[in-house]
């Protein structure tokens, strides 16, 4: 484990921002911290980064402070610095051994080549976010802590940041907090769910989703769908068939593996004109709402 906490507690007055958090993050994983506003995500990242001290509990991080980096949700830099200077300063502070040409490379990866020589006071919020990521990855950190890295961005900017994070997989361990569950589901392989300072789930994303969603397929086909639905209902491995539109069926099955083998044959035998066929992915949002609404 690259990060382990036990009984981590942070009190602000009498309010417990974190309440006995036992967190374990495996090396090389992309770990998503999710939870409603005020759940303690930023406080937890602040403690892991060393910017805040826990009231109680232990934190063990298997890398030195210089090998980790924190990107706040709205990164800001002295407005009279250029983008290149921001990344160059980060390089000097954490990785002076990295060749200077790497500065241009990370700025290019962040899509900031053309703006690199401009003062960051004129950067948009999305550009600042990408500059923050560039200044973070220049040090080739082993552990990245990203606080809501895409929350303030437009769809294009969000896509770019998610791609940058996905690109980091295998190069570093990433812990990111987000309330955009689709982002977490897309880029994270493990997740921790915080509610009111308590970690109510921590583990692989699959463990969270499996068992909380009924295995099912979505079948799009040319109308009429009823004859096909009747053929499917006759199968003992099909648990339910619901029309979800004039050309769509939701087919509940005993097991996805079983359906992979048998479903195409049943559809073919029923003369179905299939447009698309895909397993229904369990939705993190449903699970999250179930966990955090209690």
């Amino acid at each position: 484990m690259i990060v382990e906490t036990s009984g981590l507690t942070k009190l602000y007055g009498s309010h417990a921002a974190l309440d006995g958090v036992d967190l374990a993050v495996a090396q090389g994983s992309v770990f998503g911290l999710v939870g409603p506003n005020g759940a303690g995500k930023t406080t937890l990242l602040g403690i892991l980064s060393g910017l805040r001290r826990p009231t109680a509990g232990d934190v063990h991080i298997a890398v030195s402070r210089r090998r980790m980096a924190l990107l706040p949700d709205t990164p800001q830099f002295d407005p009279w610095l250029t983008g290149t200077e921001v990344v160059a300063l980060a390089r000097t502070l954490v990785a002076p051994q990295v060749p200077r040409q790497r500065i241009d490379e990370v700025l290019n990866d962040a899509g900031l080549s053309e703006a690199a020589g401009r003062r960051v006071g004129g950067y948009s919020r999305g550009m600042l976010q990408r500059l923050g990521l560039a200044a973070t990855v220049i040090g080739q950190p082993d552990l990245l802590l990203l606080d809501e890295p895409a929350s303030a961005l437009d769809p294009a900017g969000r896509r770019e940041v998610l791609d940058l994070i996905a690109h980091l997989r295998g190069q570093a361990t990433v812990i990111l907090s987000s309330h955009i569950l689709g982002d977490v589901q897309e880029v994270c392989d493990a997740v921790g769910v915080l509610r009111a300072g308590r970690l109510i789930f921590s583990g692989p994303l699959e463990d969270l989703l499996v068992g909380r969603a009924v295995p099912a397929y979505r079948v799009h086909l040319r109308a009429p769908v009823e004859p096909v639905a009747d053929a499917l209902r006759a199968q003992d491995w099909v648990t339910s068939v619901d029309a979800t539109g004039v050309d769509s069926l939701r087919v509940g099955v005993r097991a996805l593996a079983e359906a992979e083998l048998r479903l195409p044959a049943v559809l073919a035998a029923a003369g179905a004109r299939v447009i698309s066929l895909a397993p229904l992915a369990p939705d993190l949002e449903d699970v999250y709402l179930e966990l955090t609404s209690g």
Partner: peptide
Amino acid sequence: ARREMAVFVRTRVD
């Protein structure tokens, strides 16, 4: 004075 600005440098020094 400005947390986001301070984070950039504070997290990069010992």
